[in-house]
Each structure stands twice: as C-alpha cells, then as structure tokens.
C-alpha cells in the first residue's frame, strides 16, 4: 500500500514534468523539466528494484543529456539578418 502510494506520487510528478516540458516556451526551462522527468524515472526504476538501470538513468538522463541539450541550445541562435541569414 505504501509502495503503491509512493509510486503513484512519482508517476504523477513524471506526468507533470512531461507536460511542462512541452508547455514551456523557453527551451532551457523545457530541458530542466526533462531533467526532472529523468530524475523521477530513476527513482521509479529504483522502486521497481532495478538499481543498475536507476544509476544509468540518473547519470545519463539527468546529468549528461541535460548538458548536451543546453550546449546545443546555446549553439542554435537566430540567424542574423544583416549578414543574409547565413551566419549562425
């Protein structure tokens, strides 16, 4: 019963984080929502007694992929119009 309540809470936070990842107009906020989603997913894997997958998910999903997304968002700027749109 207790375990089910915790799992329901974690899954609800996952759903909310997924919704906000789509809802935010700011891309950085979206990426942070995805990091929260990954963190909750790691917690859920841990509750389902798969600690190996939980460690991998926490390191990759919440740590490294967030970094890679933010680096990519920094790289993608609006093209400058005075240079004919070719300069990014």
């Amino acid at each position: 019963m207790m375990n089910s309540a915790v799992q329901l809470l974690v899954l609800a936070v996952m759903a909310v984080a997924g919704f906000f990842a789509l809802w935010f107009k700011d891309l950085i906020s979206s990426v942070i929502s995805l990091a929260v989603f990954s963190l909750m997913m790691a917690l859920e894997f841990y509750l389902l007694q798969a600690p190996d997958v939980a460690i991998a998910e926490a390191a990759i999903g919440a740590g490294l992929s967030t970094t890679i997304f933010i680096i990519t968002i920094r790289a993608c700027r609006r093209p400058k119009s005075r240079e004919g749109g070719k300069e990014w």
Partner: peptide
C-alpha cells in the same frame, strides 16, 4: 567506486563511466 565494485554492488562499467563523465560537465 561504482566502477570498481561493479561485480558486487549495482553498477558496472557503463554506469560508472557515465558518472565520471559528469565531472567534465
């Protein structure tokens, strides 16, 4: 720690390597 004790505790090569790579971030 996760890497070296991969055969006893949860973890292993991929997980430990990913955690160490967080250092650069």
């Amino acid at each position: 720690n996760v890497l070296l004790h991969g055969y006893v505790t949860p973890g292993g090569g991929f997980q430990g390597g990913a955690i160490i790579a967080t250092f650069i971030a």
